[in-house]
């Protein structure tokens, strides 16, 4: 395959995100819903990079968004009067990446030496464990969390602070989604991707083929975690100007990540995008029709997908387009 041809599937991804962005920008009053959808897509894209490509489930995934949101909150909270201006955001994103990198390296180094079920067990307490460490040892203000609405105003000025919360933060969520999708495609087209496919299908056979499975699992795990950390920094900290440990380590974000990936198709490039939009739109309407019932409806949907359509929407579509010109674009 020629290089240009290899990366053709990026076109539908970019077109879709551009369309979503245009929908939010051009139609008055739709920015919030468009950015909410982008959040689900970004969450799915980042999660898919690990779960979809390795077949491992990380039940503590939200912890990476959580530490990422602290990464952004801390510099704004403590350094708002230092005249750093927008550099604070750069520092925040950097710290978010560093925090999630360290946490994922620590968890991954232990858990990724273990196989499937044991891995899932090891991750099940990561989000709660971290939340209770922050609350128990009273780190970073403990259970009171960090509230930095006024610090944002001090640091950036009233107008800029409002613009950051209402537009920039959402714009950065789009950026995370697109970067995550591009990273996925790059992985898929390089040795990492083939190694991950092999170990997802048969880990022992992969080892015998010369694949250092732990190395590749950790690579995917850390990439996925760092993207989640940056997502937490922008979608939560910058947007809402507060971080509470009880909110940012809430397991239902992990549930949402799983739903987005499964609806679209685990291990596909377009899947999390399609899944995120299906989930976001149906959640939006369910909130109107049956408020409070969203999870009760989506949990059986997860089971139904696993039992009846394990390939997800894009997985099925992929099979349909084999032998047609679309084949090159949909993966």
């Amino acid at each position: 395959m020629k290089n240009t041809e290899k990366y053709l599937p990026v076109i539908p991804v970019l077109v879709a995100y551009a369309a979503l962005l245009a929908y939010g920008v051009l139609i008055p009053g739709k920015w919030q819903i468009a950015s909410q959808l982008a959040f689900y897509c970004a969450l799915g894209q980042a999660f898919n990079l690990f779960m979809g490509m390795t077949g491992y489930v990380d039940f503590g995934y939200v912890a990476f968004l959580g530490v990422g949101s602290y990464g952004m909150a801390l510099p704004i909270y403590h350094l708002s009067d230092k005249g750093l201006g927008l550099w604070l955001i750069v520092i925040g994103i950097f710290l978010a990446a560093v925090f999630s990198f360290i946490l994922s390296l620590a968890v991954g180094a232990v858990a990724l030496r273990l196989r499937g079920a044991y891995f899932a067990i090891a991750t099940i307490g990561v989000n709660e464990g971290f939340r209770f460490l922050i609350e128990g040892a009273r780190i970073w203000n403990g259970s009171e969390g960090l509230l930095f609405f006024l610090h944002m105003r001090t640091a950036f000025g009233k107008q800029t602070a409002t613009a950051i919360s209402n537009y920039w933060a959402d714009g950065m969520v789009f950026a995370v989604a697109i970067v995550a999708a591009i990273m996925t495609l790059i992985y898929m087209r390089n040795k990492v991707g083939y190694a991950l496919t092999a170990l997802r299908e048969d880990e022992d056979a992969a080892k015998v083929m010369g694949i250092n499975v732990t190395k590749y699992k950790i690579t995917a795990f850390i990439t996925s975690a760092v993207l989640a950390g940056i997502l937490g920094a922008t979608a939560w900290s910058l947007k809402y100007s507060y971080v509470y440990p009880s909110d940012v380590f809430e397991i239902h974000y992990t549930v949402e990540a799983i739903i987005n990936v499964l609806l679209g198709g685990a291990g596909t490039l377009l899947g999390p995008l399609v899944g995120g939009i299906i989930y976001g739109v149906s959640k939006y309407f369910l909130a109107i029709i049956l408020p409070g019932f969203q999870l009760l409806i989506f949990a059986p949907v997860i089971i139904a997908i696993i039992v009846l359509f394990p390939e997800g929407t894009v997985g099925m579509l992929k099979k349909k387009v084999i032998g047609t010109p679309l084949e090159k674009y949909i993966i």
Binding site: Y194, T197, D204, G210, I211
Partner: peptide, 18 residues
């Protein structure tokens, strides 16, 4: 024990790659 979801070509290429 081939890698089921990968194509025949990809399976063999994985051997060459690693």
């Amino acid at each position: 024990r081939p890698f089921s979801s990968a194509t025949v070509q990809e399976n063999i290429a994985i051997g060459a790659m690693f």
